[in-house]
Design a protein around this nucleic acid. Structure first.
Lengths: 396, 396
DNA sequence: CTGCTACGTTCCCCTCGAAACCAAATCGGC
DNA sequence: GCCGATTTGGTTTCGAGGGGAACGTAGCAG
């Protein structure tokens, strides 16, 4: 099929496209309720969108006591690619224009293999999804990388855990390969956008989204918009000091949060506990798999292993200490916990909550929900799709 | 004279008023360069503003090679009152419409005496300024209080250091007394607005403004706008844990930044040092005045007293630790240090800088100026005047 | 006096919003 | 079951408002 060529001609059309994306098929009347336009102007702009093909008629809606309305919807053939590059795995998904996930693949992969190898993988996965029949092509792609990004250019800058990517023109390269527009952002920001679009953070203006995976980061949403900071490194909380004179960290300092709690730190701690004979549960799993990850700790904790539970609680407490500071500072309306360690579930959440509620000001915590993300691994790819759709659904 | 009765009728007029406020007297052509309006529309709106009396003709400008332009300016008789209520003193200033300070008074006062007593004081100071002839009346007033504020209503909420103020209708009460519109905000936010308007933070979109006075707080500016948080307590960093299991704090926790460094903590430490005979310089000053404040420590440090220098350095290091975390999280383009302890000057600044540059990520600190505010005690009152002018120069 | 430049105003056309108007469905009464 | 009242959705008409360009005006330089 023909790929998306048109772009909204003005802010009104952009607004309408986003309403159709977020609200699904709608009548002109429904659109009119949500946008500040006269009915005549609205009709004109909808007609123009129909002409471009971005929007198509979608039949008559059921009557609600009067004349039935003619629904319109976004072109059903539009397809966005959402890519979430983690430290140790890649997620690729295809969505329609309403950002519903039509297909989703995950593959282990080491980001340190560099952009060329990773892109090969991503392109193969995108091709596989296309081959499965859910997409005839891609109208745009969003991609998240585990490090700071110079957002306007779509280029990673000084990413600690993916040194080979520094300055690599991710946006340009991927756009060339895929033949469609591409936007790049930090993976944590995309997770925040995902939970904002389709998860627990719907209708919350200011919130924090803590992603605990191999590393640890924080998406910051202010007034509905992602805050990226002056150099694109906002939310990089992994190297905030959690323990004075604590463990040495790869960054050169001591006591960084990430050195004390993260997927990587947890795996190290679990290994140590197993080898020192402090946990038979973990030792068994080590013997079975030859290595230990956060998943093993989660399983051991679920089986009631006290050492595993302790590791999780301690990590949660450390994380909670840092979050408590951020909550006092930022006064968010919601804190979302997500990322690979969500499997640790409510043990982790409870430890974090306890610490935050104890340490932050009552005024800031009084009405502050601290919850797990509800989209899991889909948050990142949905956020990525949302990123590119926000871009494409804006005036050219 | 007649007080300001008119308000801008639309967003264009609001924009023009703000341009005249920030840029001083201007010609229609100059305004046209800074606003996206046709020359015809611009002329119409300027004429309407002239009719309302908010704007007046200001003679002809010098020629720049062609026809001379007719300047316009904001009504010269407009007067704003800026009030900055600190924990231990009150600042009151009068500005013209361009927010230039025409008169400024400061008086010691304990905020814990409650709103009624403080208001009496403030009104007396406002009357004194008016009596001096610089104002015939006030067109609006901005007021800063040292605690969280429910911004839309202008009411303090659960302020720790001013318990008698909780829920007191500051905005309404003051508006009644002064007979003009009033806006209320946290004092730290106003300091940030002041430095943004007329100080070091001009033209910086994202910055932090750390105010170290009796307590310690932080104004957060995102995209040029003050971030107040969900419950108005954003920036309340005084109770972030700086020292695990550190000193007990009035808030019930231990190791809060404010318990280890602030005007109050510094005075306590200085007293202890003097009494323990660790500093003859401080002991002399204690004997002379019967008490010690941050000013004494500054003087002792200036005289080379090692204990005083040590106290400042240690405080700066503690503060720097917390700021380092905030910088990693927020990635600002500038950090401004202000408040009562600015007298400690570069000793303090150096300690803060050292700590932040050591602990934060290079990407976040690489191009990050950390500077002292340049407006001193005027920052708060200018910010207050700016707050009310922003309000009055917006469509009703 | 004659260009030249900059400033301000006038005129025309297009856009947009509000309201009247037209169309299509349900509901209720007989 | 028919018919009008009611409700909801969509279209047309009309007038105010705003942008662009042409035009008029005021100062400077030679």
């Amino acid at each position: 099929m023909r790929r998306m060529t048109a772009r909204p001609a003005n802010a009104h059309q952009a607004r309408l496209l986003k309403l159709l994306r977020d609200g699904g098929p709608s009548s002109r009347a429904q659109l009119g309720d949500r946008v500040d336009l006269s009915r005549s102007k609205l009709a004109v702009e909808v007609d123009r969108l129909l002409e471009t093909g971005l929007v198509v008629a979608d039949g008559l809606a059921a009557s609600r006591g009067g004349r039935r309305s003619h629904n319109v919807r976004l072109a059903p053939g539009l397809r966005f690619l959402g890519v979430d590059i983690g430290a140790t795995s890649v997620d690729v998904a295809v969505t329609n224009a309403e950002l519903e996930v039509l297909g989703h693949l995950n593959q282990p992969m080491d980001v340190r293999e560099g952009p060329v190898a990773v892109f090969e993988q991503v392109l193969a996965m995108a091709a596989k999804l296309r081959a499965s029949g859910i997409a005839e092509g891609y109208d745009g792609a969003g991609i998240g990388v585990p490090g700071p990004v110079r957002f306007p250019e779509g280029v990673p800058v000084a990413p600690p855990i993916m040194p080979g990517w520094d300055g690599f023109p991710v946006r340009e390269a991927l756009s060339q390969e895929l033949g469609c527009p591409v936007m790049v952002d930090n993976d944590v920001n995309l997770m925040a956008m995902g939970e904002q679009h389709a998860g627990v953070a719907r209708s919350v203006g200011d919130f924090l989204c803590i992603k605990i995976g191999t590393g640890i980061g924080c998406g910051i949403v202010v007034g509905g918009e992602v805050h990226r900071g002056t150099t694109g490194s906002a939310g990089d909380i992994g190297h905030i000091q959690a323990v004075p004179d604590g463990r040495p960290c790869a960054c050169g300092n001591r006591g960084c949060l990430e050195a004390h709690f993260s997927g990587a730190a947890l795996a190290r701690d679990a290994l140590e506990a197993a080898q020192q004979g402090r946990s038979s549960e973990l030792a068994t799993r080590l013997e079975a798999n030859g290595r230990l990850t956060a998943v093993d700790v989660a399983a051991a904790a679920a089986a009631g292993d006290p050492t595993a539970l302790d590791l999780i609680r301690q990590g949660g407490t450390r994380t909670g200490q840092v979050i408590a500071g951020l909550v006092s500072f930022f006064n968010p309306g919601l804190v979302v916990i997500g990322g690979g360690v969500t499997g640790l579930g409510h043990t982790l959440l409870a430890a974090i909550r306890t610490q935050v509620y104890r340490q932050s000001l009552p005024l800031a915590t009084g009405n502050l929900p601290i919850v797990l993300g509800e989209l899991g691994p889909k948050a990142g790819v949905i956020g990525a799709a949302r990123l590119i759709s926000d871009h494409l659904f804006s005036p050219a």
